[in-house]
Each structure stands twice: as structure tokens, then as C-alpha cells.
């Protein structure tokens, strides 16, 4: 029983690359709409949907991007009205809207992604490209809380040594610089101990292997195959037809291929949501038996 959340991080990352890649790569308002809905639903399901600030920000961004295009670009044949003798056209307004959908859905997908990926998972994905960068990443994450703690101690000590005067901003900044300087010396000097501890445990002796807590299970492979097959369907069907905005909107005719494309994308964006729901239902069912 594994939810999308617990799937192998590499499978999850590739899934997100497929979904956002298609949104960015294929400029089709219907696909963008599907992508947006999928992202919105999943962001509500996976828990970070309660963040009203985020929704508001996305809304503002949506309106801004949707409006800026017709103000700048005056292509298109259907003139709606004039502002300062510049025509505002329906086509460029719709173009802007479509674009705004694209932008906002990518943002939603990314926020879902960072909600699912903690530093351990990111480390795992990262480490496949470069174990060294992954190690530096992990060490830096170790240092951040340590340094935060220390800077509190330094501030306390320096305060009792008369570093700060009451309510003087310049003095505060000077003090902060001093604190930062102490912390750097401390960090660098003590860092040598870390380096020794690494060498003492055989770092640099030979080729490193990489231990992770993640594995590829059958369902990860299924997720990977399913999402790549669906992505290929979407791309193949979308390349066949073009959504033209200028000079006049020409929507491609609905054909079997394009319907397959849209449906495939719909399934693709809903995979995580369906997965979460499925697990939820299964768990309830199981619980009723226990």
C-alpha cells in the first residue's frame, strides 16, 4: 500500500517533469486547462491547498499575465475596444489567458512537488547525478541549524559585552556584521574537525557507494511506465494539430487522435490524486474490517 507521496522520488520527479514539461512545451489552451485543474485538485489533496496566500498570489499572477498580453500585443482581428488608440483584441486576450493558465499551473505543480519532496528525497534524486554535490548538500543542511544555534549564542554573549546600544540601527548592523564574522571563524576552524572525522571514516579512500532508504518497487516501475506512455501519447497527438491564435483563432478539429491526447493528459495529471484517493478508500475499507 503506497501512496504517490511514498513512491520512489526519482519516479515522482520524472512524473513532475513530464507533466510540467508538457504544459510548457505544448501550447494548447485545452491542455493548459487540464493541467491547471489537475494541479489544483492535487494541491488540495496533498495538503498544501489550505495555503490561501498561495492561491491569492497565483490569482494575482494569473490576472496580471492574462492582461499584460493584450496591452502589449495588438495582433488579432477581433477588436474589442481601444485604449489610447491601441486596439485590444479578443485573440490576444485569449492568448494571454492561455498563457496565464500555463504559468499558474506550472507554479501549482512546483508547489505540489516541493510539498512532496523533503530534503532526504531531494538528496536521493540529486545524488544520482553527483554524489559529491549531494554530500555537500547534506552537510550544508547539517550546518544550517548548527550555525543558527551558534549565532544565537554569539548574539547573547556579545550583548553582554556591550555590543548593542538601544535603538540604533547603524549600531545594530555593525553588530550583526561582527556576529557573522565570529560565526564564520568558528565555523571554518571547527569545520576542520568535521573534515578529520570524514577522513577518519575513510572518505577519499576509493570510490564511494551511495546508501539510500529508497527502492524501486513494482508500483514505482508501473508509475514510471504509465506516465511515460501517457506523455508520449499526449505529445504525439498534440504535434499533429496546432492551436492558432493569430490572426484569428483556429481551433483544430476534434479528431480521435486529439481526443486520445486530451484524455491521456487528463489521466496523467490525475494519477497522483487517484492514487491518494485509492489508498484512502482502501484504508477505510481495511479499517472497517479490523
Amino acid at each position: 500500500m503506497r501512496t504517490f507521496k511514498d513512491s520512489n522520488p526519482i519516479a515522482v520527479t520524472l512524473y513532475f517533469l513530464f507533466v510540467t514539461g508538457i504544459t510548457m512545451f505544448l501550447f494548447d489552451p485545452i491542455l493548459n486547462g487540464i493541467s491547471f485543474l489537475g494541479a489544483l485538485i492535487f494541491s488540495l489533496v496533498c495538503g498544501d491547498g489550505r495555503d490561501n496566500k498561495k492561491h491569492l498570489l497565483c490569482l494575482v499572477l494569473f490576472v496580471a499575465t492574462a492582461l499584460i498580453n493584450p496591452l502589449v500585443s495588438h495582433n488579432g482581428v477581433t477588436v474589442l475596444f481601444f485604449i489610447n488608440d491601441n486596439p485590444i483584441t479578443l485573440e490576444s486576450l485569449l492568448y494571454g489567458c492561455s498563457n496565464a493558465f500555463m504559468l499558474v499551473s506550472v507554479l501549482y505543480w512546483f508547489s505540489c512537488f516541493s510539498c512532496l519532496m523533503d530534503s532526504d528525497k531531494l538528496l536521493y534524486v540529486f545524488g544520482s547525478f553527483s554524489p559529491k554535490a549531494a554530500l555537500v548538500f547534506s552537510m550544508a543542511l547539517r550546518y544550517i541549524p548548527l550555525f543558527g544555534d551558534r549565532s544565537k549564542k554569539i548574539r547573547a554573549t556579545q550583548k553582554t559585552m556591550g555590543l548593542y546600544k538601544d535603538g540604533n540601527i547603524l549600531d545594530m548592523i555593525r553588530g550583526r556584521v561582527r556576529e557573522f564574522s565570529i560565526m564564520t571563524t568558528w565555523a571554518l576552524e571547527k569545520g576542520i574537525i568535521t573534515a578529520d572525522s570524514m577522513s577518519a571514516r575513510g572518505y577519499g579512500q576509493g570510490r564511494r557507494t551511495r546508501f539510500t532508504n529508497f527502492r524501486f518497487y513494482l508500483c514505482d516501475v508501473i508509475l514510471l511506465i504509465l506516465s511515460s506512455v501517457l506523455a508520449v501519447f499526449v505529445i504525439m497527438s498534440a504535434v499533429k494539430h496546432d492551436f492558432v491564435f493569430y490572426p484569428a483563432i483556429v481551433a483544430p478539429k476534434m479528431s480521435l487522435i486529439s481526443v486520445i491526447g486530451y484524455v491521456s493528459y487528463g489521466v496523467l495529471v490525475l494519477i497522483p490524486t487517484i492514487n491518494e484517493w485509492k489508498e484512502e478508500i482502501r484504508w477505510r475499507y481495511l479499517r472497517s474490517k479490523i
Binding site: 530534503s119 547534506s138 574537525i193 576509493g206
Partner: peptide, 28 residues
């Protein structure tokens, strides 16, 4: 060594335990 804090290399307990074994190239 002496200082508990500085000897730790990585950010999580599991990774710290694995660190030395990774270095000597042990299988996962």
C-alpha cells in the same frame, strides 16, 4: 574525537551511520 557536534558530517542519523560504509564502497 572531543566535540559531539563537529564530528557529525551529514544531516540525518541514518546517513551518518551509512557515511563510513559508503566511503569504503560497501554494497547497498
Amino acid at each position: 574525537m572531543q566535540s559531539p557536534d563537529e564530528q557529525i558530517v551529514t544531516d540525518t542519523v541514518w546517513h551518518e551511520l551509512a557515511f563510513g560504509l559508503e566511503n569504503i564502497g560497501m554494497k547497498r
